[in-house]
Design a protein around this nucleic acid. Structure first.
Lengths: 337, 337
DNA sequence: GTGCAAGATGACAGCGCTGTCATATCTGCC
DNA sequence: GGCAGATATGACAGCGCTGTCATCTTGCAC
């Protein structure tokens, strides 16, 4: 019925163990044997049973993608990351399980335990803001399960992928400065997210570089959602000297700013320049289209998974790779009024 | 190290096989024995090994979520469906694997085969437009793998979940008619999607009910994307008698219509009413906010998964359940000019 | 009581692999 | 040519469960 390792062994005239060695890319197999075995595997369309491998050995060839399910980052972001991870898994014959985690309560500990001990997960990919959630990372360490991080705050010792968000944010604000803006406001995201910190830091850096004094009243608190963008913008509009440009920490909030601007009768981008961050599909669906920073989420998912598997296969410790960002200058930013 | 079935058996004073029976909810176990075993499992925190179960038995307790990866429906939609499915799986101790499928070429056959024979998937959940992709369904049948469908065109014999989209679309157009619109245009989605057909049918039904003659020139072709909405709208605006209302087959295209309207200097909703379908987050992020139909995607994912598991556990054949829709009347629709 | 079907439980092999350890084969070098 | 030390391969048990079939209890009719 099913082609087994033993069948391949018989066809090649070697022992099952040798076929197993080839399958697992172990070193001590003569090249000629290896080729014969591989050929047989191919021609017989042999596909190893993950269940048997998991049961007999110590590896499951399973990785888990962990994401936060209450403080949800945009689902488009996660979907892209997930697709990237699946891509990488496919290429290396790993399988992926998606695992939403609620960090409230102790639920998540049980879930992580269940994952690791039930399925003997080989490794984990952690997405923000879980990336820096200490109890989770600690638990993973206790289980001895390696993890790759996407955009971790703490770079030291981390493997995975990151982007120079601070630099990107600075470039974006530089652009506003070049357009002649001086009263530039910023809407920060949820406080303990790395993204919020980096983008704020980039904003400050750009101001400093342009010789504009930092004014805390131009910084409004948001929480990465459309609605919070609306509220923050309304606040900024009430200032005695309202900003001529607003840099929102992500696209959703930027959309909220645009909504609030429309509500107030401001004409974009003539009366107000707006920019966001992430380059979600939303950015090109707004009117005017949104100036933002492209974050290659899919690519990042893929790279993180690759680093994890590099590590799992013992081909090295795995790295924290950096991906380039790309400014997307569109119609929502224009010369200061 | 790990608590095994055998340990539970020893603690309870029964044979491993009996514990296995309890685990699998088989009938012929005396109630008192069952309780003792369950208590022992609980107190010892026993967690069965999926690998061993899969290897020894015929079930893997794994379901796959299949989705299309080239003709992608909105990722927010998929993300919601996936979360719903995960919810249901969690509740019934099943695990889920996400499987993007490219329907181009023969790749997908290999992928499906791999899934089914590698992981011995117990069942599959199919999302549109895969729901009616004949080669896929046939292959699943050949493998003897049951599947649940989300919004299948072919209701007969299907299990899963659906919504009365035609009725919803009719209700939406009824609303436009009540606002006094007579020149109502429709932008259809990708041709062979059930969603496109139903929504078009509802549009026609509403026109007929209002005594408005159907005019094919008021129907433009789109493909569910923002860009196609822009193009279709531009086309409609060029008509000698441009429409006063446009019903786009989904929210993304409706956003495109709004973009095109802005581009043309039309003031919404004064000069043009626009409505969409799906109630994606986008709908409330546009300005003016979009009148649309809420589709409870998350709930639908959950229900489909529940029906599938019902079937897998042999508790019945599984049903095709229908979920209610909800009109979301917002600011993008107003009285006809 | 006895006999017999149905109900409840157990013994045992084996699912398809890998870990461990033993064995065979090949190097190079004196 | 022979021997140490690598290099390459194989034998075998066992991972944690479930399927099959056998066995042991029951309950119940006669």
């Amino acid at each position: 019925m099913r082609v087994r390792l033993e069948d391949v062994a018989r066809a090649t005239g070697v022992s099952p163990k040798t076929v197993s060695r080839v399958l697992n890319e172990e070193a001590s197999v003569k090249e000629s044997t290896r080729q014969r075995v591989l050929a047989a595997m191919e021609s017989m369309n042999y596909r190893p049973s993950p269940a048997a491998r998991g049961l007999a050995g110590s590896r499951s060839f399973l990785v888990a993608l962990l994401y936060n399910n209450n403080d949800n980052p945009a689902s488009t972001y996660l979907a892209e990351v997930q697709d990237g991870v699946l891509d990488a898994c496919d290429a290396h014959r790993y399988s992926m399980m998606a695992c939403p985690l609620r960090t409230r309560g102790q639920d998540f500990i049980r879930r992580v335990d269940a994952l690791v001990s039930d399925h003997q997960i080989d490794g984990v990919i952690v997405t923000p803001p879980l990336t820096d959630y200490a109890p989770l990372l600690q638990r993973l360490q206790e289980h001895g399960v390696p993890h790759a991080s996407i955009s971790p705050v703490q770079h030291k010792g981390a493997i995975g992928v990151c982007m120079d968000e601070q630099h990107a944010a600075k470039a974006l604000v530089d652009h506003l400065v070049e357009l002649g803006h001086r009263r530039i406001a910023h809407i920060v995201g949820i406080a303990n997210h790395g993204a919020s910190r980096w983008r704020l830091a980039g904003y400050k850096e750009a101001l400093a570089a342009a010789g504009i004094e930092f004014d805390p009243s131009y910084v409004a608190q948001g929480e990465f959602t459309f609605g919070s963008g609306v509220i923050a913008a309304r606040q900024l509009f009430e200032l005695p000297q309202p900003p001529t440009a607003i840099f929102a920490s992500n696209d959703d909030m930027a959309a909220g700013v645009m909504w609030a601007a429309n509500e107030r009768g401001l004409k974009l981008p003539r009366d107000l320049s707006v920019c966001g961050f992430d380059d979600t599909p939303l950015a090109t669906q707004l009117w005017p289209s949104l100036t933002t920073v492209r974050q290659p989420s899919r690519e990042m998912g893929k790279l993180a998974a690759l680093q994890l598997m590099e590590r799992l296969r013992g081909r090295g410790p795995g790295l924290l790779v950096q991906v380039p960002y790309a400014l997307q200058l569109r119609e929502s930013t224009a010369a200061a009024p």
